[in-house]
Design a binder for these strands. Structure first.
Ligand SMILES: [Mn+2]
Ligand SMILES: [Mn+2]
Ligand SMILES: [Zn+2]
Ligand SMILES: [Zn+2]
Lengths: 141, 141
DNA sequence: ATCCTAAATGCAACTTTGTTGCAAATATAT
DNA sequence: ATATATTTGCAACAAAGTTGCATTTAGGAT
């Protein structure tokens, strides 16, 4: 996804441009890490109803504005879809890094894509690669 | 993890061998797919308290009997740790497949391991690779 | 075999997270 | 400006997981 405004995005998806959606999009745009629904509610929960925030996140995810990142936790985190989240050889691929120290999840962009072979019969449309370890910032301190 | 009985596992972890634990372990051993807490509670919830089941699953995960599998859903699924879940070149790696049709998650064993390079500063201790698509059974029918 | 003790379980209450139905508000096309 | 489909807020609900505590039990010691 290009760094386009929500207004531009609206044109392609049919979503209406509302104050809540602009604020949520702004938060994702400025975040250096993946965010959970809880994270967004903590930031906007006094200004907007939590139900609307949940619905905004769902709508964004359904329309390809953000994408859910697989984690081993019982909550989902989301991040803006970027250009290089796109397909390579018809396989949508995502690389993310979960830091054990700070607990944050980061998108790893500009990655060389490995076309890992699957067992016979399995047909993959996307692959999510989640590293776990210590992030750049945490390993310096 | 070897195909050892819980009794053997107890020796190494200090866990007590109880009826609930034996039943949970049996369910995981016989399952051909990854299971959620809900799945286990549906099978054992009339016989045991859900709290105890939650605690059993946590204990198993903490002691390396089972491992959590990253997904994009708001629930976690678990699978038995197998021998080849072990480390290769000091990087614990797991390959799983989420089927869009049946909704099941399968362990993909015996995989060639790719040592994917990380950006400078990031130190990975494990990597989880989650494919999404159509599984063997579902693509035949 | 019995006793002892730390660990495991069951139960009740609670919290967190997400969902549903519906009425009121509002963004956008005409 | 008006019309209308979409979005939002509110209340109620539901699912999933947690906490505290009393009771029970597994497994080692006697
Ligand atoms: Mn990403
Ligand atoms: Mn596995
Ligand atoms: Zn970190
Ligand atoms: Zn399937």
């Amino acid at each position: 996804m290009k760094k386009e405004s929500l207004k531009e995005k609206v044109k392609s998806t049919g979503l209406k441009n509302t104050p809540l959606r602009e604020e949520v999009l702004k938060i994702f745009t400025e975040a250096r890490k993946a965010l959970s629904s809880k994270d967004i509610i903590e930031k906007l929960g006094k200004k907007y109803d939590r139900v609307s925030i949940f619905r905004t996140i769902s709508t964004f995810a359904e329309n390809g504005v953000i994408h859910a990142i697989p984690t081993s936790s019982d909550y989902v985190v989301y991040s803006l879809c970027r250009d290089n989240c796109a397909t390579a050889e018809h396989l949508d691929h995502h690389y993310h890094f979960f830091c054990r120290r700070c607990g944050n999840i980061f998108c790893l962009n500009d990655f060389e894509f490995y076309n890992i072979k699957l067992p016979r019969g399995y047909k993959a449309e996307s692959v999510n690669i989640l590293f776990e370890g210590v992030c750049k910032d945490c390993s310096q301190n």
